[in-house]
Amino acid sequence: MQKLSLALLLAAIATPAAQAEGWYGSAKLNSARQNLSSSLLTSPRVSERVDAPDSTKTFTSSFAVGYAFREGWRVEGEYTLPSNSTFKSYWAPFNANVNSLHTQSQRLMLNGYKDIPINPWLSFYGMAGVGVARIATDGYQSNETRRFASNRQHNLAYSLGLGLDAKVTEELTLGVGYRYVAMGDVETGYNTFANRINARDEQLKGKLKEQNLFLEARVAF
């Protein structure tokens, strides 16, 4: 009898949970680390980068509405609220001139998920997303009076991630996850200040990337 009870318990734990089909809403709290790679100061008078831009950390939120299909597939539309970052760099031969690039980024993404049940209440998932990142940029050289013109652009963005979900009730699921987001090339406008040759031929550029660690709450309608 004890062996039968133990066998039934193990079978229940090992049995994948039935995937509920229907609409849901979700909210994420993201710990975001943004990085500006391949950074460039386009000027014919600089020779090399002295110091790479710092990565920045911030918190932001995102909201999504999606539909869960059977067999563990989900599709959702997600909006990520604006996130602000500042990256600083130095270029030879003007080592004393800090170049400060400020970005404000927000995203609208279409995400796809595949849930892999571990037991009736716990599941692992992988995800991928594609969408549009809206990025506003500006910056300055040395001090706030020597500014680069602001710029606003819309870039193709993509993301890859994985996570772990716990089904608390039939309606509520809580989860944790990680994802990598690429938001493409960003650039300021040209310098508004007078440089050594009184030309408008300098701007700040780079590739904006982000890594997320997030907490999620998902509610089925």
Rank of each mutant, 00 (worst) to 15 (best):
A18R: 06
F63A: 05
L162H: 08
W91G: 03
L36C: 03
A128D: 02
T86D: 12
T86W: 09
Y113A: 00
L160Y: 14
Q2R: 13
E78G: 03
A92Q: 11
V219G: 06
N155D: 06
A92E: 08
G163D: 01
R107Y: 14
L208T: 03
M1S: 15
E78C: 04
A157I: 03
V50C: 08
A182I: 00
A52R: 13
A18V: 13
L213Q: 05
G77A: 13
E21C: 09
V130Q: 06
E187L: 12
V46S: 00
R147W: 10
Y67D: 03
K207A: 13
A68K: 12
A17M: 05
Q34P: 02
T169Q: 04
K88E: 13
A92T: 04
A92N: 09
V130A: 14
S55G: 11
V50I: 14
N151C: 02
W121C: 07
L110W: 09
K88Y: 12
T137N: 14
S61W: 15
Q153P: 09
R179G: 04
K88N: 14
L101I: 04
E71Q: 13
S85K: 03
S39K: 05
A52Y: 11
W73L: 11
A128V: 10
R45V: 09
H154N: 12
G77P: 02
A157L: 07
L4I: 11
P53G: 00
K57S: 15
G139E: 06
G77Q: 05
Q19T: 12
E202M: 06
T103D: 08
Q141C: 10
T60L: 11
S43I: 04
L108D: 00
Y125P: 07
L6T: 07
Y125T: 02
G175N: 04
V181H: 13
V130I: 14
Q141E: 14
N84P: 04
T192A: 13
E144R: 11
E216C: 12
S105G: 11
F59Y: 15
G22N: 01
G131E: 01
A32M: 15
A166H: 10
N191E: 07
Y140K: 02
D138W: 14
A157W: 07
D185G: 08
L215P: 01
L208A: 02
P16R: 00
Y125K: 05
S5G: 05
T80E: 12
L160C: 06
T103F: 08
S123M: 08
L215A: 12
A166Y: 15
E48V: 09
K88R: 15
V65E: 02
G139W: 08
D54S: 08
L101S: 04
A92C: 02
V130S: 06
S37Q: 12
P117D: 03
R33D: 11
L215D: 03
Q34N: 14
S38V: 05
A20L: 10
Y24M: 03
I13G: 15
Y178F: 09
A20S: 11
G131S: 06
I118G: 04
S62I: 01
R196F: 12
